[in-house]
Write a protein that binds this DNA or RNA. Structure first.
Lengths: 147, 147
DNA sequence: CTCAGTGCAAAAGCTTTGCATAATA
DNA sequence: TATTATGCAAAGCTTTTGCACTGAG
């Protein structure tokens, strides 16, 4: 049984459970985001989607991203650039480390919320619902290459 | 001696040291950002600036923000929204906690870079040059008001 | 006096929206 | 069949850029 069948069924269920219609466009967009290891922006999702469904429109991509974000199925990240990046939502708190040299993105987990609430006085009574950490710099390899 | 005189002299020095001309527009924009406790976006800087210099243009605001950012005098932050926010650069590593209810922004310091480099395997050999943590939720007071 | 900086207006992204058509449940 | 979702095109925002003029050094 091919992997795509699994993924499609999974997407369909997620959409149905959320009360949304399971259209081919939505399933495709979710597939792309799920497989998008580097974090994709809307235009990149659109370009990848067009390869499989040439008639898909940018508006559909944007509308789908909004819907999925609203449902908590994907996460919208705000990096250095003017546009947003999207990824499938992870169950646990995780963060990002980007290399300016090669552009690779390392994800790592770290219980920052707990830590900050424990150590920062003003945060103690805060009900933190969103945590976004982005670090960037140069990875070992790119530093070597520069020398 | 009024505070504004100090601030203006300070801005002038900063600009001169950076090899930039000390124009009234730049001095004003730096003043606004320095005093902008909540983090201002370009348009807010523009509107405040127009109150003192009605002929100032949005392009000047954008160009100045870019210059100052390039020189490391101000920091560009990427929050939830589509546009950027700016603040005077702090010497030490600090982070943000925003209340969705009342919009207040709490700044706090925390040596995250050191911590992550020490505890996250992939980060050990990374040369981290940029760290941006943004947390958000509801402060104690807003939680009480909701009940 | 020179050249960096400014204001204005126009252009260039990214994102949203209105409306007729197509597809799902 | 009744809506919901899509595609297209047009509009909306934020940000950038070209050019002639102004002002700091």
């Amino acid at each position: 049984m091919p992997a795509s069948t699994n993924a499609q069924a999974k997407n369909g269920n997620l959409l149905n459970n959320a009360g949304l219609r399971n259209t081919t466009q939505r399933a495709l967009i979710m597939d792309i985001i799920r497989q998008g290891r580097g974090h994709l922006d809307a235009d990149e999702v659109y370009r990848q989607a067009k390869r499989k469904q040439p008639r898909i429109s940018l508006s559909t991509v944007y509308r789908t991203l909004q819907k999925l974000k609203g449902l908590g199925l994907i996460e919208e990240l705000h990096f250095d650039e003017a546009h947003h990046h999207y990824e499938i939502k992870h169950p646990s708190e995780h963060h990002h480390l980007t290399c300016f040299g090669c552009g690779k993105v390392i994800e790592f987990q770290y219980p920052l919320t707990r830590l900050v609430k424990r150590n920062v006085h003003e945060a103690k009574e805060f009900d933190i619902t969103q945590t976004e950490l982005h670090m960037a710099g140069y990875c070992e390899q790119c530093r070597k290459n520069k020398k």
